[in-house]
Write a protein that binds this DNA or RNA. Structure first.
Length: 636
RNA sequence: GCCCAGAUAGCUCAGUUGGCAGAGCACGUCCUUGGUAAGGACGAGGUCGCCGGUUCAAAUCCGGUUCUGGGCUCCA
């Protein structure tokens, strides 16, 4: 295995980290310590809990080791010798397992620096003195082999660079990234609020954030009208039976809010001494007839025997909807369809609720209640390719308009040996081929990732990085041959026979919450005019022109501009400073000269002082910039 | 859910050994009426996340809890 020079430095750092830890804590049991995109880590099992203090001491020890200028020596050994070395060093707890991972016939190597020796394929820097710029950053828990069922080890994260300057620049970049974190900007610019008493992961959209969201929704809605979509509305809850039919319930029970029975039923059951366990079993169960039907349709054991119950024991209830598709399916199915009607495209900004683990919640990007800019397309098999392409081009239009170009496209295919997919493999092959073709036509690079599909079909996702490099899935297009069968959908074809339509699920933003979170970071709060909650701020220089300023305020409002008037008695410099901090894209300075000529002095946040223009010209220019959804052009 | 660390005014943060709760910014009033990133004075604002314990006395020590942050796991 060969590594880039930077990877070698980082990888060597994790060895030095382990060396230092063993010097300070000889009882430590080592697991694994690779380089990462941004640094390195080592997973360590130790009774003593590392503290921030320890981190400092370990780093000091690492610096000493670097100064000791130990050479990294490679040693190839037989499997038996490897076992002996590991035992001799008392590191058999994890290292023997790691050794067993190395396939027979492959070289087994150790790297030694000073007194430390680690099972490792390499490669490394020649001497520890090459490690001049490293820093330990944090301690985190990490499961052995990434499996929740295994013991949780302590992971020490650090980063390293070739030079001290690069390290300092990196740390500085991280510091700056904090300034554009959507959680900070969300508070500063009053875009959203999450309240402890309302609940974790439940976003309250404040007036400013609501403007942002509404503008984005208007934008999408316009595009949808162009593409022949129909707008629908559906409620936030649905009967449990609906999700049993769709198949969502058995697959995603754990990530849904608990189902609830009707109030009267609940009381009756409580009086009868029904336990919670019974209640749950009776809500989650299905009838023999239902199970047989579903299993016959899917051709596999979709409903396992342990979920089958006597019909008179079954309870129906309600659930907060975890997705919109079943509701939209019922709208489609409420009327007969001819092939001439297809495709039917139903769109809704539909709010869904999912039980995310508490540790996974994150500002607006990972929440428990969110609104998808959702739509479901019902079409003939022949129409799939064209419709998928239409959806993809919609996503592309959206991202281009917002100037978001730093994304990757992921074609999610089914897990080849996993159980987490439903339906006929032949149809999956068809759908996967359709997605691959559509992605090719899109003209952007994409990767194919097995195991990333939805349970009902393959999908194409648009994945974007946030300011600290974490990836978030936004827009998504999914082909589905399964749900139409589950719900027994049909249309009458040209042959006068019923046929099963194909469904396409798509959401160009993904969810309004996540998209806005990423968008806030993308623009660092500097929204283009059409999205800015406050588009224009009027800055009268003195009270002498306050009447003129108020008149302008009225005129700009009448023109549909989101405008405010700064009536504070501060000097102009202070007003400008405040407007800049509030990230208002356009400020209009108003003094005696402007009042006399029905004009304003324009200051653009992106371009600075732009000089005086008449009020009419200014309004026309602003309206034009808004109507075209222009991105703010920086000063040339 | 798990590991670690936090929570003090709207925001950013001080608060020593347990001994009267602090600053800057923002906000309000007044003075100032100004030309492209901070004019001045005064004022208001906090049950120190919440619950309990130790103590003559708790922001401070201990236990629990909620929420937040960084990871892990998960993510239709």
């Amino acid at each position: 295995m060969s590594m880039s020079p930077l990877e070698e430095i980082r990888h060597s750092c994790s060895h030095v980290l382990a060396t230092a830890v063993l010097r300070l804590f000889p009882d430590a049991k080592l697991d694994i310590g690779p380089p990462t995109d941004t640094g390195f880590y080592y997973d360590i099992d130790l009774e003593h809990k590392f503290t921030a203090d320890d981190l400092g001491k370990i780093e000091e020890e690492m610096k000493k080791i670097a100064k000791e200028n130990q050479p990294f020596l490679r040693k190839e050994v037989s499997r038996d010798e490897a076992v002996a070395i590991i035992r001799e060093r008392g590191q058999e707890r994890y290292k023997l397992g790691r050794l067993a991972d190395i396939p027979a016939g492959e070289a087994i190597s150790f790297y030694q620096n000073g007194e430390f020796m680690d099972l490792c394929a390499g490669t490394h820097v020649r001497y520890t003195s090459k490690l001049k710029a490293f820093k330990l950053l944090s301690i985190a828990g990490a499961y052995h082999r990434g499996d929740e069922k295994n013991k949780q080890l302590q992971r020490i994260y650090g980063t390293a660079f070739e030079s001290k300057e690069e390290l300092a620049a990196y740390l500085d970049r991280m510091e700056q990234a904090k300034a554009r974190d959507h959680r900070k900007l969300g508070r500063d610019l009053k875009l959203f609020h999450i309240d402890e008493e309302v609940g974790q992961g439940l976003v309250l959209w404040t007036p400013n954030g609501s403007i942002l969201r509404q503008e984005l929704q208007n934008f999408i809605s316009e595009e949808l009208r162009k593409q022949g979509y129909a707008q629908v509305f559906t409620p936030h809850i649905g009967k449990l039976a609906l999700y049993k039919t769709s198949g969502h319930f058995p697959y995603y029970k754990d990530s849904q809010f608990t189902a609830f029975p009707e109030p009267d039923e609940m009381l009756r059951l409580a009086d009868a001494g029904c336990t919670c366990a019974e209640l749950t079993a009776r809500l989650e169960g299905v009838s023999r007839h239902f199970a047989d039907q579903i299993n016959a349709r899917t051709g596999r054991e979709t409903i396992t025997p342990d979920r089958v119950m006597d019909a008179d024991q079954l309870l129906d209830g309600f659930m907060l909807k975890p997705m919109n598709c079943p509701h939209h399916i019922k709208i489609f199915d409420s009327q007969p369809h001819s092939y001439r009607d297809l495709p039917v495209r139903l769109a809704e900004f539909g709010t869904v609720y999912r039980w995310e683990q508490s540790g996974e919640l994150n500002g607006m990007t990972r929440v428990r209640g969110f609104t998808q800019d959702d739509a479901h397309l019902f079409c003939t098999p022949d129409q799939v390719a064209a419709e998928v392409l239409g959806c993809l081009s919609l996503v592309k239009t959206v991202l281009t308009t917002l100037g978001m170009s730093d994304y990757r496209v992921r074609v999610g295919l089914r897990d080849p040996d996993g159980k987490k997919f439903a339906g006929d493999p032949a149809k999956w092959d068809l759908a996967e081929a359709a997605c691959r073709e559509a992605a090719k036509t899109l003209g952007v690079p994409f990767t194919e990732e097995p195991g990333e599909a939805a349970f009902y079909g393959p999908k194409i996702d648009f994945v974007i990085k946030d300011v600290i490099g974490r990836e978030w899935q936004l827009g998504t297009v999914q082909v589905d041959y399964v749900l139409p069968v589950r719900f027994g959908l049909s249309y009458i074809g040209a042959d006068n026979q019923p046929h099963t339509p194909v469904m396409i699920h798509r959401a160009p933003f993904g969810s309004m919450e996540r998209f806005c979170g990423v968008l806030i970071e993308h623009f660092a709060g500097d929204f283009p005019l059409w999205l800015a909650p406050e588009q224009v701020r009027l800055l009268p220089i003195s009270e002498k022109v306050i009447d003129y300023a108020r008149d302008l305020h009225t005129r700009f409002k009448a023109a549909g501009i989101r405008v405010t008037l700064d009536e504070h008695s501060d000097k102009l410099g202070a007003k400008i400073r405040r407007a800049e901090l509030d990230k208002v894209p356009c400020t209009l300075v108003i003094g005696q000269k402007e009042a006399e000529a029905d004009s304003v002095s324009v200051r653009s946040r992106a371009r600075g002082d732009e000089g005086v223009m008449t009020v009419d010209d200014c309004l026309a220019k602003l309206k034009q910039e808004i109507a075209t959804r222009a991105l703010a052009a920086k000063k040339a």
